[in-house]
């Protein structure tokens, strides 16, 4: 029992730590962009998963074999556990290397193929290690079970087995959660999630949190946030023909508010462009042109040459956009 726990500690603690040490050296040598470090970090999780998964299969198989000698099982457990942990990590690194060489074509399948390939590899290793020591006897697979099926599961009740099955389940659930539930997440985003959590701790220790909260509350003009939300709403409403009028109302409100808070002109340009886009969909060419005329009017008395040029450019770009617009004749 003690030895078994020792080897499990070796698999679940020392192997990933070893991997992390490699990451450390890689990141601090010439991996300037941290590309290899990214992959190694991901591989740490993969190797844990492989180790846990192969362990489950191993114990399940051992408990299913009615004729094994207990001593042999203990010895083969050690060998298989150690080999699976070490070779699992090596296989992961080799596969990762090849998946990089394969390039973008297979990138979207990379996560899935890696998992499947590694699981197969781990299973094969454990079968070879175990049955090599037990004399390649596969005959039990063909025999009718001697004991009720649920007896075979009694190994689950042993505390050490229970612990690693819990770890394996956790890793398994996390793995599938990230892969399917948040299937849009890329490796970069996953790294971002990890770093983000780290930054949150660094940035907001208990004593600093209060300071940041109170400063931040005064740092942003609430009207700017309000303009943002009105524009976001207008963009959603603009998608539907039936809600175009509501979208126009929201943009008008945002524009009015922007004027009241002395919104810089370049930001007002974006609002004008959105308004023209909506009017275009509503087949209101005159109203759209009026928006451009407003900038022209502003430019009439402008003495600053740089400012004048800037507005002239905006007028040109908006007119260009208006040309592309296909107005439908009303009535």
């Amino acid at each position: 029992m003690c030895e078994s726990i020792f080897y499990q500690v070796l698999e679940y603690v020392i192997a990933p730590i070893g991997l992390m040490m490699i990451i450390f050296f890689v990141k601090n040598s010439d991996d300037k962009n941290g590309v290899f470090a990214h992959d190694f970090r991901d591989d740490g999780i993969e190797s844990l998963f492989i180790a846990a998964y192969s362990h489950i299969l191993f114990y399940f198989s051992v408990s299913a074999h009615p004729h094994e000698d207990h001593r042999d099982i203990e010895d083969s457990t050690k060998t298989a556990s150690l080999l699976v942990a070490v070779l699992g990590v090596i296989t992961t690194i080799i596969l990762k290397h090849y998946s990089k060489v394969w390039g973008d074509k297979t990138k979207k399948y990379k996560a899935i193929t890696n998992n499947v390939a590694l699981l197969l590899m781990a299973n094969l290793l454990f079968i070879i290690c175990y049955y090599n020591s037990a004399g390649w006897d596969f005959s039990f697979l063909l025999k009718k079970p001697q004991v009720p099926f649920w007896h075979r599961l009694s190994f689950l009740l042993k505390p050490n087995n229970f612990i690693f099955i819990m770890i394996a389940s956790f890793v398994l659930v996390m793995r599938f959660y990230l892969q399917w539930h948040k299937h849009k997440l890329t490796n970069d985003v996953k790294t971002f999630l990890r770093l983000n959590r780290k930054t949150a701790i660094e940035l907001l220790p208990e004593n600093k949190m209060k300071d940041y909260t109170s400063i931040a509350r005064n740092a942003i003009n609430p009207l700017f946030v309000r303009i943002d939300s009105l524009l976001a709403k207008a963009k959603i409403l603009e998608q539907n023909k039936e809600t175009l009028h509501s979208a126009l109302i929201e943009v008008e409100r945002a524009k009015e508010m922007a004027r009241n808070v002395n919104y810089p002109e370049n930001l007002l340009y974006g609002i004008r462009k959105l308004k023209i886009q909506i009017l275009c969909k509503m087949s209101e060419p005159e109203a759209a042109r009026l928006e451009i005329a407003e900038i022209m009017f502003q430019n009439l008395g402008e003495t600053n040459i740089e400012m004048k040029e800037m507005r002239e450019n905006w007028i040109k770009w908006l007119e260009k956009g208006l040309e592309k617009c296909e107005f439908v004749e009303n009535g």
Partner: peptide, 25 residues
Amino acid sequence: LLRTEDRERYALEGLYLLKVIREEY
């Protein structure tokens, strides 16, 4: 990540991102 409308947390998203970009690129 935090899925909150709190302004202070709203603001911090960009700061997190700046740190990530600086470290990675």
